[in-house]
């Protein structure tokens, strides 16, 4: 039950994109088509779960016992960069169309602050191994959810009669703001 609550909390209440404003770049960048938003969400979730596992191991088994807490950020970045490389190879092997649809945003997962944020939060909140995995899963699910909602809205927006000055980026940012406002409604339900 605890773990489930943690998952829900990470996915919806403390949504990484819409409540903590992490990972805005792919949120705006890859949310113009539903299919690519979904695969981007999947790829990011995959990286997030593995990151939470590996960074938990490195933090609690390597860095803390050796009093190397100050190496936290470089070590985590190393983990994330390697994982993204791996995911890139994997996706290129499995599906060329998805690889091309994600384009530059795939290698940019490396610099997605949501992932470094996740690793840092896990070490900061002293989660257990299992909690870390569920937190990562929840964060990934929340990221995917935000991306999918945004993509759905933006696909409809294509057909809408948007006033000229708001077309393109402005209306996207307004929609993102309104979405964040909606998610703020969950604030405080589970701390």
């Amino acid at each position: 039950m605890e773990l489930f609550l943690l998952f829900i909390s990470a996915a919806i209440i403390n949504n990484f994109v819409l409540s903590m404003f992490l990972g805005i770049c792919p949120f705006i960048g890859v949310s113009n088509k539903f299919s690519s938003a979904l695969s981007m969400g999947m790829a990011t979730t995959f990286v997030m779960v593995i990151t939470s596992v590996v960074s938990w191991l490195i933090w609690f088994l390597v860095l803390v016992p050796n009093n190397l807490e100050f190496l936290q950020i470089p070590a985590f970045i190393l983990v994330i960069a390697s994982l993204v490389q791996f995911v890139e190879m994997f996706i290129k092997k499995v599906s060329q169309p998805i690889y091309r649809a994600l384009g530059i945003f795939l290698p940019l997962i490396t610099t997605n602050c949501a992932i470094l944020g996740l690793a840092l939060l896990i070490s900061m909140k002293d989660y257990s191994f299992l909690e870390g995995i569920f937190f990562g899963l929840g964060a990934g699910a929340g990221f995917t959810l935000a991306l999918i909602i945004m993509a759905g809205i933006r696909e409809e927006l294509e057909l809408a009669d948007v006033p000229k000055p708001f077309r393109g980026a402005p209306i996207t940012l307004i929609v993102a703001g309104l979405l964040a406002l909606a998610f703020m409604g969950f604030a405080g339900m589970i701390s």
Binding site: L68, L71, L78, V79, S82, F86, M89
Partner: peptide, 20 residues
């Protein structure tokens, strides 16, 4: 220790990526 840790980590990941 710090250098060895980071170097070791880098080495492990590099090996894993080479295999992948």
């Amino acid at each position: 220790i710090a250098v060895a840790t980071m170097g070791g980590l880098g080495f492990i990941f590099a090996g894993a990526l080479a295999v992948a």
